[in-house]
Every structure is written in C-alpha cells, then in structure tokens.
Design a protein around this nucleic acid. Structure first.
Length: 300
DNA sequence: CGTCTATCCTGTGGGC
DNA sequence: TGCCCACAGGATAGAC
C-alpha cells in the first residue's frame, strides 16, 4: 500500500523519465479511475500536452502539464505505474502514450507508454484545469509534510490537544499530517515507544517530540529502502521495494521485538491491523468507570 | 465537532 | 482438492 515513502520512490524514479515528454494519447480503460469525471473528457484533457513536472504531496502524485492543467493521482491500496512494460499488465486501468522529439532532430519522435494497473481499483485520478484549484483541494485535505520543517513537535502537540481518539487514528488522518499510512504509523509508534491506542491528547510534549522524530526516521528508512512491497507495490520497472524486510513490528506478529525480544502482538486500533511490542509500548490503563474523580488540570 | 463504522474492491489464504 | 468466507486497508460518507 503506497504511503509517503512508496510514492516518493515512484516520483524519484519516474520524474526524470517523463519530464518534458508529450502525452500523445491517453486510454482510460476503467471509468472508475477518474469518476465522476468522464473518461473521454479526461483523456481529451491530457492529450497533446507536455508534462512539465511530476511531484508528490502526501500520498498523491501531481502531474503538472503545459498550460497549468494538472492530473492529481492517488494509488490507494494497490495502484501501480509501470514504465514502458514489455506487455500490458493485468488489472489495467489506464495507459498514457508518451513521446519525445528525437535527439537527432528529424521528424521522428521516441515513444513509450506508461501503464496504470490497480488490482482493487481504489486508485483515483482527477483533472484540475487551474493549479490554484488543485492547491485549494490539497490544502483542504492535507496537513503538513512530515519531512518538512513546517511540521513541528509543538504543532503536533497542539493538534492532539483534547483529542481522545487513539493516537494512531490521528497519525492516519491526512489532515493532521500528510502521507502516513498503516505501515509507517506502526513503525513510528514503536520507535517512539508509544502505544497506538493511547489517547492522542494524553501525549506529553516530550512524547510528541519523540513521535515526530520516530516518524521521520521511519519514513526516511522507507525511502532509503525504496519503499515496502507487502503485496502489490512495485517500482516502475516492476521490481519490489525492500523495506518490508526491515519492518520492526509491522506484520511481525509472534516474532521477537527487535529491541527487547518480547513477542510482537497484533491488535486492532482505528479499525486497522496494528502491531506492537507491549513491553516497549506500554498499553494505556484501561479506562474504568469513575477511576479518576479528579481530572488533572488541563495544560495551557 | 469528534469519533466510529460501513463502504468501495478483489486477490489471497485459512479452514474444513 | 476445492469451496467458502474472512481479511487486507486509504479515503470518505453518514450515523450517533
């Protein structure tokens, strides 16, 4: 499931290969990919335009086209982009045929195709004619980039204040911080020694600092390993990432904790499969009726 | 407003 | 061996 490191990996691989190319033709095989926009309209909006830039925001891919038009793409669970595959993959949802002017001049243009495939068909794409509309769209649903300086421990603490939901649920909330999914939430909470079911608002500033640092470390480790391929994620040449071999707790139920040797447990938190070491991540005290008559004074 | 649950979708794998 | 069903989860709508 592509999260920030996986999408970052794709962008780094694909950007130098597509920048400057022209979209000769767009074929949208599954109309659900771009719904509610019409496949024919989306294909027409793409055709003939040069790709000026490919970038990432959260888990979104942003294709900036000539004239300011943009394609906003999300891979969700099982989306894959293959660069000029020898044959079209299964679960094909869209194909973009690209071309470049031939280096030798002449009239000939080098051509190749990008194939978008998606086994579970959750992936999306949307055309924005105005880049400001795209910015507004993203600003509305995405918080800060966790690897950028604008995301601070103090900001995290402020965002969690008063929230009783499990801290993991808020890490997964893209409006709080962009790009974190189930894998990196588990890995970051483990690295920070924080139990995912802790009420978010109960974290101290020191714990917010630890969590932010742990999150950055987990995400950077994921980028260094070129992403995690649990099942569907693939590089643009079909190769798997390697971060799944470096998970500390995620998907490691029953195996030993890399820090203390205790057994890793699988739980359900925020409706998601969640992996913890109960020794390294002390569980919150279960709230019992009337356990605390006197609430601690709220901090300012 | 905050929190929780159901929904979309389909390949995979456990159980019998 | 083969069938059935639960399960996986990112984002979002809707319930409470």
């Amino acid at each position: 499931m592509p999260e920030l490191p996986e999408v970052e990996t794709l962008v780094r691989q694909l950007r130098p290969l597509v920048r400057g190319a022209r979209i000769e033709r767009a074929s949208i095989i599954d109309p659900r990919w771009c719904a509610p926009q019409q496949p024919a309209a989306v294909a027409a909006a793409l055709t003939g335009l040069r790709i000026e830039e490919l970038s990432r925001r959260g888990k979104y891919l942003i294709w900036r086209l000539e004239g300011g038009r943009c394609l906003l793409q999300h891979l969700r669970m099982t989306g894959v982009i293959l660069y000029d595959p020898p044959q079209l993959p299964a679960h094909l949802v869209a194909v973009l045929e690209l071309s470049w002017p031939d280096a030798r001049g002449a009239g000939a243009r080098r051509r190749l195709r990008l194939a978008v495939s998606d086994a579970r068909r959750f992936g999306t794409a949307e055309i924005f004619d105005d880049p400001r509309a795209l910015e507004r769209h993203l600003a509305w649903r995405l918080g800060p980039e966790p690897l950028e300086g604008s995301f601070s421990a103090a900001g995290l603490k402020a965002a969690l204040r008063g929230r009783r939901a499990p801290v993991k649920a808020l890490l997964l909330d893209q409006r709080l911080v962009a790009g974190v999914g189930n894998i990196y939430a588990d890995e970051a909470l483990f690295r920070a020694g924080i139990h995912p079911a802790r009420a978010a608002g109960s974290l101290t500033l020191a714990q917010c600092e630890a969590l932010l640092q742990a999150l950055r470390e987990a995400l950077l480790a994921g980028v260094s390993a070129r992403g995690a391929s649990i099942d569907d994620f693939r590089h643009i040449d079909g190769v798997r990432g390697s971060f799944q071999d470096r998970f500390l707790v995620h998907r490691r139920a029953g195996q030993p904790c890399p820090a203390c040797g205790g057994q890793i447990e699988k739980l359900r938190v925020a409706g998601r499969g969640t992996y913890v070491c109960a020794r390294c991540q002390p569980p919150p005290r279960r709230r019992s009726a009337g356990a605390r008559a006197a609430r601690p004074a709220p901090e300012r």
